[in-house]
Amino acid sequence: MNITLHVWRQKDAKSKGRFVKYEADDISPDMSFLEMLDVVNERLVLEGEEPIAVDHDCREGICGTCGVVINGRAHGPRERTTVCQLHMRSFRDGDAIWIEPWRAKAFPVIKDLIVDRGALDRIIAAGGFISAPTGSASDANAIPVPKENADLAMDAAACIGCGACVAACRNASAMLFTSAKVAQLGLLPQGQPERYIRVKKMVAQMDLESFGNCTNHGDCEAVCPKAVSVDNIARLNRDFIKSTLIADRRVAVGVEGAG
């Protein structure tokens, strides 16, 4: 296959970026999208040019490192597929492919197609956990968990933190990401003690990081490589509203650290 690429090139965070055109000839349909970029980069290096910087690591769709917008769609044309699992057989000979980094205020571009997604880590650090210091656990079977809850929690926990939901959202909202963790932990008995403080803290951090708000368009779910459902956003909203009531009550009776 012969493909024409239009790739976003940007030297660093401070420089202005632009699209640069590259011809990618003799591409095998069995190559993954990243292998195609490997081939293009090898050729660029031999021609004395700088290769295209792109984040990637596991190349099996689970680490969440890779992620670019391909022809306007986060992770490209295939549903439930990360860039590294996308293969060139999804394109046709002669196609033009436009490749850009995630675009969001909270994800500044570092170089070419690489962005800084540190904001997602900070949302987790704010409250996306169960406080269970090492050594403090009781027997694993001491608390039965209904299978349905365990399965729903696993569906939410499948999030790989790639940020496609943010890139696809017209508001650059991180609601799908945040709600996946809120829902996972809220569905489990172990997550109950911190349930309402957790949601308040995570939402507060999300706002601090300049992510937008959710307006229920569902573009996030459509591009999510792990098909994390927007049902989780409903779970977050319900918990968040409850949390404002509960926390206020606790503040009223003088309980500190109520979020």
């Binding site: 169960i130 050594g135 696993m154 172990q190």
Partner: peptide, 21 residues
């Protein structure tokens, strides 16, 4: 002890219908 620790953290291990691991 590892399994106990991970369950306490909310790791969603596969479960039977009775709720056990």
């Amino acid at each position: 002890e590892i399994i106990d620790q991970c369950v306490a953290q909310g790791v969603p291990f596969a479960r039977e219908y009775g709720g056990l691991l």
